[in-house]
Amino acid sequence: MTLPILYSFRRCPYAMRARLGLASADLRVELREVVLRDKPPAFLAASPSATVPCLKAGDSVIDESLDIMCWALAQNDPEGLLDMPQDGHALIAATDGPFKTALDRYKYHTRYDDADREAERTKASAHLETLNTQLTGQDWLFGPTPRLADLAILPFIRQFAMTDKTWFDAQDWPDLHRWLETFLASPRFAAIMTKYPQWREGDAPIFFSG
Rank of each mutant, 00 (worst) to 15 (best):
L3S: 09
D116K: 07
T166P: 09
T130F: 02
L44D: 05
W140T: 04
I62D: 01
R178A: 13
R19A: 11
P174W: 07
Q198P: 05
S47Y: 00
D87Q: 15
D169C: 06
T2Q: 14
L180P: 03
M84S: 13
F160K: 03
P144F: 05
T166E: 15
K165T: 12
I153W: 05
T51V: 02
L148P: 04
A102E: 07
R11G: 06
D77K: 06
P174E: 11
P48R: 01
F99Y: 10
R188D: 15
A57S: 11
K123V: 06
R17E: 12
A90H: 11
W167F: 13
D150F: 02
S24Y: 10
V61T: 08
P53C: 02
A115F: 01
D139C: 11
H127M: 05
A94Y: 03
L176D: 01
F43Q: 02
S60F: 05
K100G: 07
T133S: 12
E181H: 15
A115P: 09
T122H: 10
F142Q: 05
N76G: 07
D164G: 00
A23Y: 04
K56W: 06
P197C: 02
R178Q: 10
M69V: 14
D113L: 13
T2I: 09
D77G: 09
R37K: 15
L128A: 12
R10Q: 13
A57M: 05
K165I: 14
S24T: 15
F207W: 12
Q134T: 13
G88S: 08
H109A: 12
M84D: 09
A119V: 10
G143E: 06
G202R: 00
S47E: 01
I92Q: 05
E79R: 15
L180T: 05
A185K: 14
P98N: 13
K123R: 15
A119N: 07
D63Q: 10
T166I: 12
S60Y: 10
A72L: 01
A170I: 03
Y112Q: 06
P197S: 06
T133F: 11
R121W: 03
A102M: 10
G97H: 04
A72D: 09
R117L: 01
D38E: 14
G58M: 06
A74K: 13
R158G: 05
A191E: 11
G21M: 00
H89L: 10
I62G: 14
R37I: 08
A57T: 04
A15K: 04
D26Y: 05
S8E: 03
Q159M: 04
I68N: 01
T133R: 14
V35T: 15
G88I: 01
D175L: 00
I68R: 10
F207P: 01
L55D: 09
A90V: 12
L141N: 09
R37G: 14
P40A: 02
T182H: 13
L131V: 12
T133V: 03
A93T: 09
E30L: 02
K165G: 07
D38F: 00
A149H: 02
P4R: 00
P205I: 04
S8F: 01
P174Q: 00
A45K: 10
T130K: 15
S60K: 14
L151N: 13
R32N: 02
R28F: 07
T122G: 14
G80E: 03
P187L: 11
P155Y: 11
F156P: 10
D96C: 09
G143W: 00
E129N: 12
L36W: 08
T101L: 12
